[in-house]
Design a protein around this nucleic acid. Structure first.
Lengths: 231, 231
DNA sequence: TCAATAGTGTCTGTTAGACATTATGGA
DNA sequence: TCCATAATGTCTAACAGACACTATTGA
C-alpha cells in the first residue's frame, strides 16, 4: 500500500434528465423490424421509438418492459442495454442522457397497439438523431451477440422448425447459411430438442418442431478467433 | 399505416443524479489489475473505483477520460461502456444512476498517482456493491470482446513480442493457448507486422518486436458458433 | 407426375491442437 | 556445455462447406 493523500476525491453529483429508449426487434415479413409509435415531436406527430423516463424506484429494465408493453400490448421476452448516450439536450423537454435498450419479441407475438407499427430496419422513417443512433446500436449489438448468446430463440415462438431457426440466424447475420452445416453445428451444441409435433405449411414435407432446451455439453473449441475482428 | 391515436404518448422527463464509474484495467504482475483510489465512504476512507459526475456539456467518455486521468496520471487508450445501473440511491450524496465504463491501459503506462493503486482482479478489497457489479461487468465485457475486437493491443505498449501478446490473451481469456496455433491464427489475421527490433529479456533467444497494424484480409470464416454460448 | 420443402450421407479442403525440431541467446 | 525461450515444420482429428441424395407432403 502506498501513501494516502490528504486531498481525498469527493465528487459531487449533479442533476440530469434521463430517458429510456426501447428498440423492440422482431422478425416480420422476412426482415428484422423495429416497433415505432406515433408521438408528438415539436408541433407535429412523427414516428419515434417508444420511450419514457423511469419512474421513481423503477429499474431501467423494468422501465423498458413497461414502455415496450405500452406499444406492443405484451412484454418482450428479452432486454439488453445497448449503450447510454449523453449528447446534450437539444430541445426543452428532451432528456440529456438516454439509455438505449434492445428488446426481442417473437414473431408470433400479437399485433402491436393501434398507435404502433412495425418497420423493417432497412426502411425506417426519419427519426430523431439520437433515436437513429440507438436503433443502429441495437441492431449491431444483436447481430454481434447472436452467436455468443441464444438470442435467436427469443425471436421465435416456444416451438419452431429448424428452417425457422435458420431463417432467424440468416436475418440477424445478414447472410445465407449452409443448411447441413447449420444443423450439424446445432446438433453439436445441444441447444434444442425435438418435440412430437410436426408443422405443415402448404407444400412440401412437414417439418419437425423443436424447442429451446440447452443442456450440458463437451468443451467448446478453444482457438482464438482473430478473424472476427471488424476493425 | 394504421389509425392514429388521439392520445399521443408524451413522456415527462424526471430529474436524477448521474455518476460515471471507471474500471481501468491493465496487466500487472501477470494478472489483470484494476485501478482503485482512496476516497471517503461515510466517515472512513476506503478503496473505491474512480468516479465522478459528468460536467455540463461533457460526454460520458470524456468524463471517463478525465476521471481515469486523475487517478492514472495519463489517459487510458480505450474506453467502453459496460452498462448503466439504476439500483436506487442508498445514501445521501450518492447517485441513483451510474454509467460503468471500462478503460484499458497498457502495461507500460506510468505508475498511478499517489492516492491510487493497482489491485489484481482476484484480490480486490471490499467495494461498494454497485462498484463490485461494475468491476465484474467490465471484466466480463472485456473477456467477451477480446476475440471480436483488438482489445488486447490496448493493453500492450506500441511494440511487443508475440509472447507478450499471447500472455495478454491468456490473461483475458483465463486459459492457456497453444503457441503454434496462436501464431498461425495471428499470421492469418494480418493484425500485426514485424519491426526491425528485437527484445532480449535475460535468458533465452531474443524475440522479435511487432506492432499492431491491421490490414485487409480475405473473408473470415462463416460458420455459426453455437459452442460459444455460455448459457 | 411434378414441385417444394425437410432432412441426411459423403467427400474434401482447411485448420486447431499436439508434437517435434531447430535457432539463439545467457549462465 | 546446459538451460531457457523463440520460432517453425509436420501430422492428425475435427469440422465447414459443397454436393448429392432420399423423404414426404400438396397440387
Amino acid at each position: 500500500m502506498r501513501d494516502r493523500p490528504n486531498v481525498p476525491i469527493k465528487p459531487a453529483v449533479r442533476r440530469t434528465t434521463l430517458a429510456v429508449d426501447v428498440v423492440v426487434l422482431s422478425p416480420r415479413a422476412d426482415a428484422l423490424a423495429v416497433l415505432l409509435v406515433r408521438a408528438p415531436v415539436g408541433a407535429r406527430e412523427k414516428w419515434t421509438l417508444p420511450w419514457d423516463a423511469p419512474q421513481p424506484g423503477e429499474g431501467l429494465e423494468d422501465a423498458a418492459a413497461r414502455i415496450a408493453s405500452a406499444a406492443l400490448g405484451t412484454a418482450p421476452a428479452y432486454f439488453e442495454q445497448v449503450g447510454t448516450l449523453s449528447d446534450g439536450r437539444r430541445h426543452p423537454g428532451e432528456a440529456d442522457v438516454s439509455v438505449g435498450i434492445a428488446a426481442l419479441s417473437p414473431a408470433s407475438a400479437d399485433a402491436p397497439m393501434e398507435e404502433a407499427e412495425w418497420f423493417p430496419l432497412a426502411g425506417l422513417p426519419a427519426l430523431a438523431p439520437r433515436h437513429r443512433t440507438v436503433v443502429d446500436r441495437a441492431a449491431a449489438v444483436v447481430r454481434q451477440r447472436v452467436d455468443q448468446s441464444p438470442l435467436a430463440f427469443r425471436l421465435l415462438p416456444p416451438t419452431f422448425t429448424l428452417s425457422d431457426l435458420q431463417a432467424v440466424y440468416e436475418l440477424l447475420l445478414g447472410r445465407r447459411l449452409h443448411k447441413a452445416s447449420f444443423r450439424r453445428a446445432l446438433q453439436a451444441s445441444y441447444l434444442v430438442e425435438p418435440t412430437d409435433e410436426w408443422h405443415s405449411e402448404g407444400r412440401g414435407r412437414p417439418a419437425q418442431l423443436f424447442r429451446y432446451a440447452p443442456r450440458k455439453r463437451r468443451g467448446a473449441r478453444r482457438g482464438v478467433r482473430f478473424d472476427l475482428f471488424t476493425e
